[in-house]
């Protein structure tokens, strides 16, 4: 039983496929998918996270509809060579710190983010510790 919101999502923006309770989308179509969700009541960005699958990074976004108590999950996969994905921080201010943390720990570059720099580690730190191939130098 895929939710009604996923069907509407599929017509409006060309996302890859709907499976189970989440939607796989193309990274570049993330902003307009997010805007579409925001107009249909899913106006609460809950969580952004990423996981390192050796040849690609899988980013997971969850949104909530506070009125009808329903939430939606979007997933996008980004290649390891150029981990680029458009930033949501100009639509939701809440995404600002979470994207900076993913840039800091995972090395994913969010295009359009106004001050994308390390948030949790100090500036001289080389490498992104959350990646699978990170060797602990100290």
């Amino acid at each position: 039983m895929t939710k009604k919101i996923y069907e509407e999502l599929q017509e409006n923006c060309e996302c890859a496929r709907i499976c189970g309770d989440y939607a796989e989308i193309v990274p570049d179509s993330l902003p307009d998918c997010a805007l579409f969700l925001k107009d249909n009541g899913y106006d609460y960005l809950d969580m952004i996270t990423a996981s390192d699958h050796i040849d690609e990074f899988i980013l997971t976004y969850t949104f909530k509809n506070l009125k009808d108590k329903d939430d939606v999950m979007l997933r996008a996969s980004v290649s390891r060579e150029n981990p680029e994905i458009p930033s949501l921080s100009n639509i939701w201010i809440g995404a600002d710190f979470q994207e900076r943390e993913l840039y800091d720990l995972m090395g994913i570059i969010f295009t359009g983010h106004n001050n994308l720099k390390r948030i949790v580690l100090w500036d001289g730190f080389e490498g992104h510790p959350q990646r699978k191939d990170y060797k602990n130098v100290a």
């Binding site: 809950d46 969580m47 996981s51 390192d52 809440g94 710190f97």
Partner: peptide, 28 residues
């Protein structure tokens, strides 16, 4: 809202475990 995003790959160690920290996001 404290959330835990867990990925497993069949081994006995979590593949990826991310915590949605409410205070971290409230600070924005």
């Amino acid at each position: 809202m404290l959330g835990c995003y867990l990925e497993s790959d069949g081994s006995d160690k979590p593949y990826r475990c991310h915590f949605r920290a409410p205070a971290f996001i409230n600070l924005t």
